[in-house]
Amino acid sequence: MLEIVGWVFIIVLFTIGFIGLVYPIIPASLFIFGGFIIYGLFFSFADLPWWFWLIEILFVLLLFGADFLANAVGVKKFGGSKAGLIGSTVGLIFGPFIIPFAGILIGPFLGAIIAEMLVNKSSIKKSIRSGIGSVVGFITSALTKGIIQAIMVGLFFWVI
Protein backbone atom coordinates (compact mmCIF):
# COMPACT_ATOMS: atom_id res chain seq x y z
CA MET A 1 0.00 0.00 0.00
CA LEU A 2 2.81 2.40 0.89
CA GLU A 3 4.40 1.69 -2.49
CA ILE A 4 1.22 2.88 -4.27
CA VAL A 5 1.13 6.07 -2.19
CA GLY A 6 4.76 6.77 -3.10
CA TRP A 7 4.10 6.33 -6.83
CA VAL A 8 0.98 8.52 -6.63
CA PHE A 9 3.05 11.31 -5.05
CA ILE A 10 5.77 10.92 -7.67
CA ILE A 11 3.30 10.99 -10.60
CA VAL A 12 1.45 13.99 -9.10
CA LEU A 13 4.72 15.92 -8.73
CA PHE A 14 5.78 15.07 -12.29
CA THR A 15 2.35 16.13 -13.58
CA ILE A 16 2.50 19.46 -11.72
CA GLY A 17 5.98 19.93 -13.19
CA PHE A 18 4.62 19.59 -16.72
CA ILE A 19 1.65 21.86 -15.94
CA GLY A 20 4.28 24.40 -14.88
CA LEU A 21 5.35 24.65 -18.52
CA VAL A 22 2.29 26.79 -19.22
CA TYR A 23 1.79 28.29 -15.75
CA PRO A 24 5.08 30.05 -15.00
CA ILE A 25 4.15 30.68 -11.37
CA ILE A 26 4.79 26.94 -10.79
CA PRO A 27 8.51 26.13 -10.40
CA ALA A 28 8.22 23.15 -12.76
CA SER A 29 11.72 21.74 -12.49
CA LEU A 30 11.56 21.76 -8.69
CA PHE A 31 8.42 19.62 -8.78
CA ILE A 32 10.14 17.17 -11.12
CA PHE A 33 13.15 17.11 -8.78
CA GLY A 34 10.76 16.67 -5.84
CA GLY A 35 9.51 13.48 -7.49
CA PHE A 36 13.04 12.10 -7.35
CA ILE A 37 13.31 12.99 -3.66
CA ILE A 38 9.97 11.30 -2.93
CA TYR A 39 11.21 8.19 -4.74
CA GLY A 40 14.27 8.13 -2.50
CA LEU A 41 12.19 8.60 0.65
CA PHE A 42 9.58 5.96 -0.23
CA PHE A 43 11.85 3.45 -1.93
CA SER A 44 15.63 3.94 -1.87
CA PHE A 45 18.13 6.66 -2.58
CA ALA A 46 20.59 3.88 -3.40
CA ASP A 47 18.68 3.24 -6.66
CA LEU A 48 19.71 6.73 -7.82
CA PRO A 49 23.51 6.99 -8.25
CA TRP A 50 25.55 10.15 -7.66
CA TRP A 51 25.85 10.89 -11.40
CA PHE A 52 22.05 10.84 -11.69
CA TRP A 53 21.79 13.59 -9.06
CA LEU A 54 24.57 15.60 -10.71
CA ILE A 55 22.88 15.46 -14.13
CA GLU A 56 19.46 16.30 -12.69
CA ILE A 57 20.80 19.28 -10.73
CA LEU A 58 22.49 20.57 -13.89
CA PHE A 59 19.18 20.19 -15.75
CA VAL A 60 17.37 22.17 -13.03
CA LEU A 61 19.92 24.98 -13.31
CA LEU A 62 19.65 24.87 -17.10
CA LEU A 63 15.85 25.14 -16.87
CA PHE A 64 16.01 28.23 -14.67
CA GLY A 65 18.40 29.90 -17.10
CA ALA A 66 16.50 28.83 -20.22
CA ASP A 67 13.26 30.26 -18.90
CA PHE A 68 14.60 33.78 -18.54
CA LEU A 69 16.89 33.65 -21.56
CA ALA A 70 14.23 32.53 -24.08
CA ASN A 71 11.89 35.34 -23.07
CA ALA A 72 14.68 37.93 -23.15
CA VAL A 73 15.93 36.78 -26.57
CA GLY A 74 12.38 36.75 -27.96
CA VAL A 75 11.67 40.32 -26.86
CA LYS A 76 15.10 41.64 -27.96
CA LYS A 77 15.00 39.81 -31.32
CA PHE A 78 11.75 41.57 -32.16
CA GLY A 79 13.07 45.02 -31.18
CA GLY A 80 11.85 45.19 -27.60
CA SER A 81 13.65 46.81 -24.69
CA LYS A 82 14.20 46.01 -21.04
CA ALA A 83 10.82 47.59 -20.33
CA GLY A 84 9.19 45.21 -22.81
CA LEU A 85 10.90 42.27 -21.13
CA ILE A 86 9.71 43.34 -17.68
CA GLY A 87 6.20 44.02 -19.00
CA SER A 88 6.02 40.63 -20.67
CA THR A 89 7.19 38.93 -17.47
CA VAL A 90 4.53 40.72 -15.43
CA GLY A 91 1.93 39.77 -18.05
CA LEU A 92 3.14 36.18 -18.01
CA ILE A 93 2.65 35.97 -14.25
CA PHE A 94 -0.73 37.69 -14.02
CA GLY A 95 -2.24 36.91 -17.44
CA PRO A 96 -3.39 33.36 -16.65
CA PHE A 97 -5.19 34.57 -13.52
CA ILE A 98 -6.98 37.44 -15.27
CA ILE A 99 -7.87 35.53 -18.45
CA PRO A 100 -7.77 31.78 -17.76
CA PHE A 101 -6.03 29.71 -20.48
CA ALA A 102 -5.74 32.50 -23.10
CA GLY A 103 -4.01 34.76 -20.57
CA ILE A 104 -0.86 32.67 -20.84
CA LEU A 105 -0.29 34.17 -24.32
CA ILE A 106 -2.29 37.40 -24.10
CA GLY A 107 -0.69 38.45 -20.77
CA PRO A 108 2.93 38.67 -21.93
CA PHE A 109 1.84 40.09 -25.30
CA LEU A 110 -0.12 42.96 -23.71
CA GLY A 111 2.44 43.40 -20.91
CA ALA A 112 5.24 43.99 -23.42
CA ILE A 113 3.11 46.36 -25.52
CA ILE A 114 1.95 48.44 -22.55
CA ALA A 115 5.46 48.65 -21.06
CA GLU A 116 7.02 49.68 -24.37
CA MET A 117 4.41 52.38 -24.90
CA LEU A 118 4.49 53.74 -21.33
CA VAL A 119 8.21 53.61 -20.58
CA ASN A 120 9.80 54.13 -23.99
CA LYS A 121 6.98 56.00 -25.71
CA SER A 122 7.37 53.51 -28.56
CA SER A 123 5.05 53.47 -31.54
CA ILE A 124 2.21 50.97 -31.56
CA LYS A 125 3.93 49.06 -34.37
CA LYS A 126 7.21 48.71 -32.44
CA SER A 127 5.33 47.84 -29.26
CA ILE A 128 3.35 45.11 -31.01
CA ARG A 129 6.58 43.64 -32.40
CA SER A 130 7.91 43.48 -28.83
CA GLY A 131 4.68 41.77 -27.76
CA ILE A 132 5.01 39.21 -30.54
CA GLY A 133 8.61 38.60 -29.47
CA SER A 134 7.49 37.90 -25.90
CA VAL A 135 4.98 35.30 -27.10
CA VAL A 136 7.57 33.68 -29.38
CA GLY A 137 10.00 33.64 -26.43
CA PHE A 138 7.42 32.06 -24.14
CA ILE A 139 6.49 29.34 -26.66
CA THR A 140 10.17 28.62 -27.35
CA SER A 141 10.86 28.45 -23.63
CA ALA A 142 7.92 26.11 -22.97
CA LEU A 143 8.99 23.74 -25.75
CA THR A 144 12.62 23.74 -24.64
CA LYS A 145 11.70 23.18 -21.00
CA GLY A 146 9.25 20.44 -21.98
CA ILE A 147 11.98 18.56 -23.80
CA ILE A 148 14.45 18.95 -20.92
CA GLN A 149 11.84 17.87 -18.35
CA ALA A 150 10.95 14.84 -20.47
CA ILE A 151 14.65 13.92 -20.55
CA MET A 152 14.84 14.36 -16.76
CA VAL A 153 11.88 12.04 -16.18
CA GLY A 154 13.07 9.61 -18.85
CA LEU A 155 16.49 9.39 -17.20
CA PHE A 156 14.80 8.73 -13.86
CA PHE A 157 12.78 5.82 -15.23
CA TRP A 158 15.81 4.49 -17.11
CA VAL A 159 17.92 4.51 -13.93
CA ILE A 160 15.34 2.85 -11.72
Rank of each mutant, 00 (worst) to 15 (best):
G6M: 12
W7L: 13
V8G: 02
I10N: 03
G17L: 02
G17Q: 01
G17E: 04
V22T: 09
I25E: 02
A28G: 13
F31D: 05
F33R: 02
G34F: 02
G34N: 05
F36E: 00
Y39Q: 09
Y39E: 09
L41M: 15
F45G: 08
D47R: 07
W50C: 07
L54W: 09
I57L: 12
L58F: 11
L58H: 08
L58W: 04
L61K: 14
L63D: 00
L63Y: 02
F64A: 13
G65T: 13
F68L: 15
A70H: 00
V73H: 03
K77C: 07
G79I: 05
K82T: 15
I86L: 15
I86Y: 14
F97C: 04
F97V: 03
F101S: 14
A102T: 03
L105C: 09
G107V: 00
F109M: 12
F109A: 06
I113K: 05
A115Y: 10
M117N: 03
M117G: 04
M117W: 06
V119L: 11
S123W: 10
K125C: 02
K126F: 07
G133C: 12
V136Y: 01
I139S: 04
T140H: 11
Q149C: 10
A150Y: 12
V153I: 13
F157L: 15
V159C: 09
V159R: 09
